[in-house]
C-alpha cells in the first residue's frame, strides 16, 4: 500500500489559538513493503507525522494519501475509519490505547469490529499473545494490572491482530527488556519480509534503526530533512552532526578504533556482527 504526503503542514488547535507549525511542508513517499525508521530530536514532529497518516491530525494544507484514500483538511470521519483499517498504529505511550476489561477483549476488539467470528478472534488472541512473548494466562487479566513492558506487548499484539497492511510504530521498544526488544523487532522484520507489511518505525534507538530498517527519514523542526538508505545516513558523520543524531554503537566503536590505530576498516559497520567480521578481516582478532 502506497503512502504519500504532499506538502503537508499541520498544527494543533488549542481553543482559539494554534500551536506553532508542527509539520511544515512535508512531502514524503513510502513504498509498499518497505521498512522505514523515522528519527530526529525530541519535538521534531515524528509522532505528529504518524498521527497524520492515521487521521488523528488533519493537514491544515496539503494532503496525504494512504492507498487510494486521500486525507486533507476536509476528510470525513468515515474515510478516516477506512484508513485505520489499513494502518495499525502503536502509540508512544501504550496506556493510551488499552481500554478493555481484559487483555483478550482488547486484542480481539479490532478483529471482531472488522467482522471476525468470536471463535476466530479468540484463536487469534491466543496466537498473538504468544507472538509477543506473553503467557496465555494473561488474556483474562485487566490490561491495567500489567507491568509497563507487558502493556507495550499487549498494545502491539492488538495491532498485529488486525493484520494491517501498514504498521506505524511510535517508540515500540521503549519499556521492553532487551530480549523482548530483539524478539519483537525480529517479528516486525519477518512480517515485513514474508507478508510485505510496510513498517514505519519512530525511534530514538539508533541500534534498532540500523539493524532493522532499510530506509531512514530524518525530521528536524517539523521538516523532513533526509529520506534515503539507513546505511548512507550512518556513513555520513557530517549529516549526523548537523541533525544531532547519534551513530550506532558499532559505527562509533569503528570510528574510535580507526582514529586510535590509524587502520581503516574496509566498510561501514552498523552492527556488532559487521564489526566482528571487519576486525577479523584486518587480522586484529
Amino acid at each position: 500500500m502506497q503512502i504519500r504526503l504532499n506538502q503537508v503542514s499541520a498544527d494543533y488547535q488549542l481553543g482559539p489559538v494554534h500551536s506553532p507549525r508542527v509539520l511544515q511542508d512535508v512531502s514524503l513517499q513510502i513504498a509498499p513493503g518497505t521498512f522505514t525508521a523515522v528519527v530526529g530530536p525530541t519535538g521534531a514532529g515524528k509522532s505528529s507525522l504518524l498521527k497524520v497518516l492515521n487521521g488523528l491530525l488533519l493537514p491544515k494544507s496539503g494532503w496525504a494519501e494512504v492507498g487510494d484514500i486521500k486525507i486533507d483538511s476536509k476528510t470525513s470521519k468515515k474515510a478516516l475509519k477506512a484508513v485505520r483499517k489499513h494502518i495499525g498504529m502503536v502509540f508512544q505511550f501504550p496506556e493510551s490505547q488499552l481500554f478493555a476489561e481484559t487483555v483478550e477483549q482488547d486484542i480481539s476488539f479490532g478483529p471482531l469490529n472488522f467482522g471476525a467470528s468470536p471463535e476466530a478472534a479468540h484463536d487469534l488472541a491466543i496466537k498473538m499473545i504468544r507472538q509477543v512473548g506473553l503467557d496465555e494466562s494473561i488474556l483474562q487479566q485487566s490490561p491495567f494490572s500489567l507491568s509497563g513492558g507487558q502493556k507495550r506487548r499487549v498494545a502491539i499484539a492488538g495491532v498485529l491482530a488486525q493484520e494491517p497492511e501498514v504498521i506505524a510504530l511510535d517508540e515500540p521498544t521503549a519499556g521492553l527488556d532487551p530480549s523482548g526488544k530483539a524478539e519483537l523487532m525480529s517479528l516486525f522484520k519477518q512480517w515485513n519480509k514474508c507478508k510485505r507489511l510496510t513498517v514505519i518505525l519512530v525511534t530514538h534507538d539508533m541500534e534498532t534503526a540500523a539493524r532493522y530498517a532499510d530506509d531512514a527519514v530524518v525530521m528536524d523542526q517539523g521538516k523532513v530533512v533526509y529520506h534515503g538508505s539507513v546505511r548512507s545516513l550512518f556513513a555520513d558523520s557530517e549529516k549526523l552532526n548537523r541533525w544531532q543524531l547519534d551513530v550506532p554503537e558499532a559505527r562509533r566503536f569503528q570510528l574510535a578504533f580507526e582514529t586510535y590505530s590509524g587502520i581503516r576498516l574496509p566498510n561501514v559497520c552498523l552492527t556488532e556482527e559487521e564489526l566482528a567480521e571487519a576486525l577479523i578481516g584486518v587480522g586484529r582478532v
Partner: peptide, 12 residues
C-alpha cells in the same frame, strides 16, 4: 527513576 529516560533522544 523508573525508566525515566526511555523517550529521550540519546544526546538528551
Amino acid at each position: 527513576l523508573d525508566e525515566a529516560f526511555v523517550m529521550l533522544d540519546p544526546r538528551s
